[in-house]
Design a protein around this nucleic acid. Structure first.
Lengths: 133, 133
DNA sequence: AGAATACCAACTAATTTAGTAGGATATATG
DNA sequence: CATATATCCTACTAAATTAGTTGGTATTCT
């Protein structure tokens, strides 16, 4: 289970923003250069992060992105969940955690997969950006 | 971060084996039918699980697969790690946990990604097959 | 002998991923 | 006001991965 580059890039960028939090808006071009990530790709990643209300943007010269709340209030789960879909869920599990592997599914594995899912979510929710600086 | 069907199928099959542990070898055809998974695909999944020494096989009629140790001794981390590569690692992180996003990488995110990686691994190592029956 | 099983390799269609290209819109600053 | 610097938006593409199929071979129980 590897994280996609999308998640990885997103996380690295968010950590970058957290490190420069007091400096106000940071343009993506700076982050792209810092982290050696393609600017165009990073733009689309930030479109998602913005939609998830994890960052705010300011247009125009000297604009850029800022965290929408303090590094202590944003957890890793939210970031990964926004970028790679429902974090720690399984192929045969829908958004609510319901398993649908069989038609007549009184599926014996449902509680098992759910348990694993929740363990990972809990672990990620417990890590805040502040802890990663 | 979704688990691939490979991991999901593998987990479901392993849970199935754990449930039938006392019955000895179970043929893949039974699991495939039970779990509604394509037999050919399941065969390749079990080739990996066997290589990782998580299951043992017996050829021939009335053969099949058994867990290599008791359901209390096999954890979810081992299964997912075998099937989907180093569990909870990142795009820019090699097997040892070293980050290589930049050439001149005294990379500031390395400890961060490592911390996340380890949190997930720990959560998964803590769940045994026995806990999922 | 025959059936059931593990084991193995090659091929394929579909999807996802990561990245590129080219622009439109907004805004701070000289 | 002009310009540079941003976000924002859409479409395209090459590469990789994924899930699955097919057609076998080797082994062993009955």
């Amino acid at each position: 289970m590897k994280f996609s580059t999308r998640s990885t890039y997103g996380l690295r960028a968010m950590i970058n923003l957290a490190q420069n939090w007091q400096k106000g808006s940071i343009p993506l071009s700076a982050i792209a250069k810092n982290e050696n990530i393609s600017l165009g790709y990073l733009e689309r990643i930030f479109a998602v992060l913005k939609k998830a209300k994890l960052v705010k943007s300011e247009k125009g010269a000297s604009g850029g992105y800022v965290l929408s709340s303090s590094p202590g209030d944003i957890d890793v789960y939210s970031i990964i969940n926004a970028l790679d879909g429902e974090a720690s869920s399984f192929h045969c599990m829908d958004e609510g955690g319901k398993v649908y592997c069989n038609e007549k599914c009184e599926c014996s594995v449902e509680p098992a997969l759910l348990k694993i899912s929740q363990a990972i979510s809990a672990a990620l929710k417990n890590i805040k950006l502040k802890d990663l600086i």
